[in-house]
């Protein structure tokens, strides 16, 4: 044993074959290729939650696009008051609503408006928020002041409260697109803030300074270096927002200022089921369950994508 038993320190040298010297700073040519997106994908690939949530989302999107493949009930035509609040029976696995409509068919057809609102609002919010946030963060100064202050004003109005007021005045033109538009009017500042922060930190990195010193124009630096490196948090927020927009739409519809009651949507169905919860819980349970599962899928996807894109979290 080296120098344990001795009070005066002796000079110990390990035999060279125990710790052979490596070439200084050698490139490991056999290493697996990796970069941010590849690493994220590797970590996602091994996550069961990723596969569960993304296949759920794909399935729900499919239902939303092609509802007629899942039920041959054209749902509004065959409402029969004789079946009012009826329980499940053959061909009608989820039972009937108060008006005697097939719950299963309504749940299937209700996917489309919810998804339309969620996807459209998310797209709008991301487009507006990323453009404004990137301009504010990258160019700073006057742009930043104006965009940030205007964003603060919109941010001061809670999304659904603002939407209630606007929808109230737009009573004649309520549809999925106007609901999406109005939700995004109040929700863009969040994406703008996040983009601005990400752009600011990317802007101050050495690779951006190096590119400018190479003669790259500022706009090209923004498009080629800064924006791609700022997208990760935006993707996460967009995924989660999609879920929360669907909840917001349902809340507006429930209050009667969302989609008109003639539109088949989960929010409307839940709202109408309120009065029959005691006698026919299925009328509440199924649309609420479908809505919640959809939202849950987006939230879970957002969660795993966040972990995958954050190298710190992955290392832990």
């Amino acid at each position: 044993m080296p120098n344990n038993d001795s009070r005066s320190p002796e000079h110990y040298v390990a035999p060279l074959d125990e710790t052979p010297l490596l070439v200084i700073d050698k490139v490991d040519e056999n290493a697996k290729p990796s970069n941010l997106w590849l690493d994220a994908w590797r970590s996602l690939r091994h996550s069961p939650i990723f596969w569960i949530s993304s296949s759920m989302i794909l399935f729900i999107l499919f239902v939303g696009l092609f509802p007629f493949l899942f039920t041959n009930e054209p749902p509004n035509n065959k409402c029969d008051l004789d079946n009012s609040n009826g329980g499940p029976e053959a061909g009608h696995p989820f039972g009937f609503t108060k008006l005697g409509c097939d719950v299963f068919a309504r749940v299937v057809y209700g996917a489309q408006p919810s998804l339309t609102v969620g996807i459209t609002a998310t797209l709008l919010v991301v487009i507006v928020g990323v453009i404004l946030g990137a301009l504010a963060g990258f160019y700073g100064g006057f742009f930043d002041t104006i965009i940030s202050r205007v964003g603060d004003m919109f941010f001061a109005i809670p999304v659904v409260l603002g939407a209630i007021v606007l929808m109230q005045t737009l009573s004649g033109t309520r549809n999925a697109l106007t609901v999406a538009l109005i939700l995004s009017i109040f929700a863009w500042p969040q994406v703008a803030r996040i983009t601005r922060g990400a752009v600011l930190s990317a802007k101050n990195s050495d690779y951006v300074t190096a590119s400018i010193a190479l003669g790259v124009t500022r706009f090209r630096v923004l498009m080629r270096h800064v924006l791609p490196n700022s997208l990760a948090p935006v993707i996460v927020v967009a995924t989660v927002s999609l879920g929360t927009f669907i909840v917001a739409e349902a809340t507006l519809s429930y209050l009667g200022v969302g989609l008109p009651s003639s539109v088949m949507s989960w929010g409307n169905d839940i709202s109408q089921a309120q009065s029959s919860i005691r006698t026919a819980p299925q009328t509440l349970l199924y649309p609420a369950g479908a809505l919640s599962l959809t939202v849950l899928s987006f939230l879970m996807l957002g969660d795993v994508v966040r972990d995958a894109l954050d190298p710190k979290a992955r290392a832990r």
Partner: peptide
């Protein structure tokens, strides 16, 4: 070096 003591004294 690489997790081991190579020399001490």
């Amino acid at each position: 070096y690489r997790g081991q003591v190579v020399e001490s004294g």
